[in-house]
């Protein structure tokens, strides 16, 4: 069910990016899409009553010298968190570029309406 909500959010973002006529709204739609995907990735690693996946000395079994099975079963998956961090950084870069292009376009055309910004045709 949470996955379905994520997907719904993704579709809302997609709808906004594809249908809206205002450049800023399109950018917002893209951002919503990205956060939906990030949310989805984070939820992949979610575990009910999970522990933070940080290995310290208490996690080791003194007898075998290995990480205890209890910790392994309780810890959430750390990989999606790393993925989301990376994708947030990428998203920051794209968002900054998109916004700056929006500003420059507004400077040139004096409008955010993409139906009036169409010098390119064919």
């Amino acid at each position: 069910m949470p996955y379905a909500m994520c997907f719904l959010l993704f579709m809302i973002g997609l709808y906004c990016a594809v249908v809206k006529k205002n450049m800023v709204k399109i950018v917002i739609g893209l951002a919503v899409m990205e956060y939906a995907v990030n949310l989805f990735l984070i939820m992949l690693g979610f575990r009910v009553n999970g522990a933070a996946p940080i290995v310290d000395k208490t996690c080791y079994d003194p007898a075998t010298g290995r990480v205890t099975a209890g910790f392994l079963n309780a810890a959430v998956d750390p990989l999606p968190q790393a993925l989301v961090l990376t994708s947030i950084v990428i998203g920051l870069g794209t968002l900054a570029l998109l916004i700056s292009i929006c500003i420059r376009t507004y400077e040139k055309y004096g409008t955010f309406d993409i139906t009036q910004i169409r010098k390119l045709k064919g």
Binding site: M33, T94, L98, R118, L120
Partner: peptide, 14 residues
């Protein structure tokens, strides 16, 4: 160029 870049960027990001 800005218009093309915006179009390219939106579709590329999708």
């Amino acid at each position: 160029q800005l218009e093309a870049s915006f179009k390219y960027m939106v579709l590329g990001e999708v």
